[in-house]
């Protein structure tokens, strides 16, 4: 009975998810000053099958100081500047730079959201929000990636700044290693490698550099969409014995350069 209930819940969940449409960004992460391309798949939404979709965008959802996009127009008659470009059946794109789209400074912009709609507002997708802008000021953190934007053919270097660790186990972790997992476009794991030796750059800084194709065997034609990394190691227990300790798993979405 429990299994049947679980199956029903999962089925409803899947149906709900398929009715929400799908949003991707290029680049995957961006500041308010970067040019971004939104790709919206309206499959399963009231706009499925339509040829004309207009974006209705708004900034700073739920944090105050929000504005409607300068391209929005009126709800009953969207501006032509808000028209998304149809690239395939149910797939629409829109290119923008947030500071221009919302007429706000980088300091004012925290996040944004949007929906797709018919010009007359008779049909619409759900709201897609909030999407946070990357900070324009560098913020030091315990984990760091170099370069910040890369694709799966690039060399990636992941860093662990132990002096910036907030968790006591991470602050004390020794015998540090890194584990990597790589994913294809469908989100399936293509390959993983655990316990990779790291470079001790100093007493508080550890790093690992890699090109995916040198870590795992990439099947011909496979393009990776993301990877995850996790620093692992050991800490001493009350008896002075080594016990395993793990940092959080950090996900990195690959950029698609064009």
């Amino acid at each position: 009975m429990k299994k049947i209930l679980l199956l029903i819940i999962c089925s409803f969940g899947a149906m709900w998810a398929s009715g929400q449409g799908k949003v991707t960004f290029s680049p995957a992460t961006f500041t308010s000053e970067d040019e971004v391309t939104i790709t919206l798949d309206v499959t399963g939404t009231p706009l499925a099958g339509t040829n004309d979709v207009y974006i209705w965008a708004f900034s700073n959802d739920g944090v105050g100081g929000g504005k409607d996009a300068t391209t929005n127009g009126q709800w009953g008659s969207s501006s032509e500047d808000a028209k998304m470009t149809k690239t395939a059946t149910n797939i629409f794109t829109f290119k923008f730079t947030a500071t221009t789209l919302f007429g706000q400074s980088p300091a004012e912009l925290i996040n944004f959201g949007f929906l797709g709609k018919a010009k007359d507002g008779s049909k619409q997708t759900p709201d897609y929000k909030p999407f946070k802008f990357d900070p324009l000021v560098f913020t030091a953190s315990q984990f760091r990636l170099f370069p910040a934007k890369l694709d799966y053919t690039d060399m990636a270097t992941v860093y662990f700044h132990q002096n910036l660790a907030t968790d006591i186990n991470l602050q004390r972790m020794a015998n540090i290693k890194v584990s990597l997992s790589f994913y294809d476009a469908a989100g399936n794991v293509v390959g993983s490698k655990q316990g990779i030796a790291i470079v001790k750059e100093s007493t508080i800084l550890f790093s690992s550099s890699f090109i995916p194709g040198r870590v795992i065997t990439l099947p011909a034609g496979t393009k990776l969409s993301k990877f995850t990394y996790q620093f692992t190691g050991t800490v001493k227990d009350a008896n002075g014995l080594d016990i395993p300790a793990n940092g959080p798993v950090t996900e990195v979405i690959y950029t698609v350069f064009n």
Binding site: P27, D34, E35, K95, P147, K149, T255, F257, N258
Partner: peptide, 9 residues
Amino acid sequence: KKLNGKVIL
């Protein structure tokens, strides 16, 4: 390596 005409890497 460029993204939307801007050199990123």
